[in-house]
Amino acid sequence: MEARMDVYKLVPGALKALMGLQDFVNGLGIDKTLSELVKIRASQINGCAFCLNMHTKDARKMGETEQRIYGLNAWHEAPYYTDKERAALALTEAVTLVSTSHVPDDVYNAALAVFTPEEVAQITLAIGMINTWNRIAITSRTQPVG
């Protein structure tokens, strides 16, 4: 499969703007491991090879285990995720699949049970950001690197 286009060359300034928002989200203080799990799970759902390649590598560099990376598709049944990770992963799935789930109250309330409202807002922004990156990479067929 070949790349279709380079969005960032075709729309000058887009990468800088998106990176500015990503830098803002990165600065919110979300746990780095949790952030990578969210990015990987959203990218799995969306089928974004470029982002999966990038974020699984980033997670490994941060010390994430192969078991937890591979288990993300089955996190509901896997015993090695914390309550906070489970709540964030459920929220990730609901936000990523918003057209079908509309983020159910039980998912939102489960997140509020383990995170502050500010943290839920921060995680929601992080989920929105990775979904933006996924959609751009998938549409343009951005190829995974190495």
Rank of each mutant, 00 (worst) to 15 (best):
A3M: 03
R4I: 05
R4H: 14
M5R: 15
D6L: 00
V7D: 04
V7T: 11
Y8G: 09
L10W: 14
V11F: 12
P12C: 05
P12V: 04
P12F: 07
G13H: 03
L15P: 05
A17N: 11
A17E: 07
A17Q: 06
M19I: 02
G20W: 07
L21D: 11
F24I: 03
F24M: 15
V25Y: 05
G27D: 15
L28F: 12
G29Q: 09
G29W: 13
I30N: 04
L34G: 13
L34H: 12
E36H: 05
L37A: 01
K39P: 04
K39Y: 14
A42K: 08
A42I: 05
A42V: 09
A42W: 06
S43E: 02
S43K: 01
Q44G: 02
Q44V: 00
I45Y: 01
N46A: 09
G47I: 06
N53C: 02
H55V: 03
K57A: 10
K57M: 06
D58H: 02
D58F: 00
A59N: 04
R60D: 05
R60F: 04
K61L: 07
K61S: 12
M62Q: 12
M62D: 11
M62I: 00
G63F: 09
E64I: 03
E64Q: 14
T65D: 08
E66C: 00
Q67G: 03
Q67W: 08
Q67T: 13
Q67I: 07
R68T: 04
I69N: 10
Y70P: 00
N73V: 04
A74S: 14
A74V: 08
W75K: 09
E77P: 01
P79V: 04
P79Y: 09
Y80A: 07
Y81T: 05
D83H: 14
R86T: 13
R86S: 11
R86F: 11
A87K: 10
A88F: 00
L89I: 02
L89G: 09
L91R: 11
L91W: 13
L91Q: 11
E93F: 00
A94V: 03
T96C: 01
L97R: 15
L97T: 13
L97I: 01
S99H: 15
S99F: 12
S99I: 10
S99M: 13
T100H: 14
S101A: 08
H102A: 11
V103E: 01
V103N: 03
V103S: 04
P104F: 02
D105G: 03
D106G: 06
D106S: 12
Y108W: 14
A110Q: 11
L112D: 11
A113S: 14
F115W: 11
T116L: 05
T116P: 10
T116R: 12
E118L: 00
E118M: 02
E119L: 02
Q122G: 07
Q122L: 06
I123F: 12
T124G: 04
L125Q: 14
L125F: 14
I127W: 03
I127Y: 05
G128E: 12
G128P: 09
G128D: 11
M129Q: 14
M129A: 10
I130D: 10
N131R: 07
W133L: 00
I136Q: 02
I138E: 08
T139V: 04
T139Q: 10
S140N: 15
R141H: 12
T142P: 06
